[in-house]
Simulated scan of single mutants.
Amino acid sequence: MKWIIALILLPCVLQAQTRITYAVKGNDTLYIDHYEPTVSPNGMSIMFVHGGGFTGGDPKNQKPFAEGMQKRGYNVFVISYRLYLKGGEFGCNTVTPVKLKAISTAVEDAADAAKYIISNAATLKVDTSKFFISGSSAGAETILQLLYNPWAKTDKARYDYFATPRFKGALIFAGALIDINTLKQENWVPMLLMHGTKDQLVPYGTASHHYCPANSDGWMIMFGAKTILEQAKTWNKPALLYTYTGKGHEVSGYMFREFDKIDSFMQDVVKGKTIAPEDIVIGAGVK
């Protein structure tokens, strides 16, 4: 009887991830944790970039997101990347050029990881026409700069590959752009954004990163979810913003809880449904 019960329960056991090395850069071995669907695959894949202020963070901490999406039929890839400021800080005392170097380093690695996944699509069971990119906090900043890249012209060898659209859409949890002018009608991808109005680190609208004063070493204007949505409305481009009134930077972790919203958005994008730019405001205390 015991072995019969074990066999009945076996399909419910989550499949352990496979770790893949995608690059070696100096002393850093960069890898991807691959989580295959544990139910019938829906054909969609996600590359996820973790947060941590470019000083820390770890792909293993994204396991709840990966497993939650696994159980909905998604093929998930959580990447590591070089932490240029590992052990340091990304605050107002870190000079702006160093902050930009930290971001650009992460963007380089995210680009290389995406290329690896796409180049090995058959082996990794990726339908490249249904390939999404996602990130949280520093990871969200990384993917936004990869999509709307301020370094594209100065590093064509790396980024010309992305002149052809490579992602079906983007899932952005508390992220911001460093240059709003890189956002153009012709390079737009459908975006699901989640951001708190009281985010104390990454601005919800347009403001200094970490709200650093203008005379600080680390002053740097960034353009958050609200500003991105306003541009989407101007051009009538697909973007869905969940605004969490009164919430702070904790919204960067909402990929662990908003699975239904994420799944619905991705399904609509793949099905070709019209997604009008919309701000869905969720009041303080409302889940």
Rank of each mutant, 00 (worst) to 15 (best):
K156A: 10
F265C: 01
V281F: 09
G135P: 00
A66V: 10
I46P: 00
I5G: 00
T142A: 03
Q62K: 14
F54Q: 08
W235C: 07
G218W: 01
R166W: 03
A106P: 11
K156D: 03
I118T: 12
S136F: 00
M47D: 08
Q200Y: 11
K247S: 14
K63R: 15
D279M: 09
M194H: 03
F54E: 08
K273A: 10
K2Q: 10
A114N: 13
Y254V: 00
K237R: 10
K198E: 14
I20F: 11
I133E: 09
D109I: 06
G26Q: 05
G52I: 13
V39K: 12
G51D: 08
I133G: 13
K63Q: 15
M44L: 11
F173Q: 00
Y31D: 04
V107G: 07
G91H: 07
T18S: 09
G26K: 05
G218V: 05
M266P: 02
L14Q: 08
I20H: 11
S137Y: 11
L146E: 05
K184C: 04
Y84K: 13
K168H: 04
E258Y: 01
L124Y: 13
G51T: 03
F132K: 14
E141L: 12
T38S: 15
C12D: 11
H50W: 01
D112C: 08
I8Q: 05
G246M: 13
D33N: 10
M222I: 01
P190Q: 06
A176R: 04
A113M: 12
D217R: 12
L9Q: 05
A66S: 13
A140T: 02
L183V: 05
K168Q: 14
I32N: 03
L146V: 07
A16H: 01
I133Y: 12
S45M: 14
A170F: 03
K247H: 14
I143G: 02
A23D: 15
G175R: 01
G52E: 12
R158S: 08
G224T: 07
S252F: 06
T274S: 13
H249K: 13
P190S: 08
A157H: 08
K60P: 00
H249V: 14
S216Y: 04
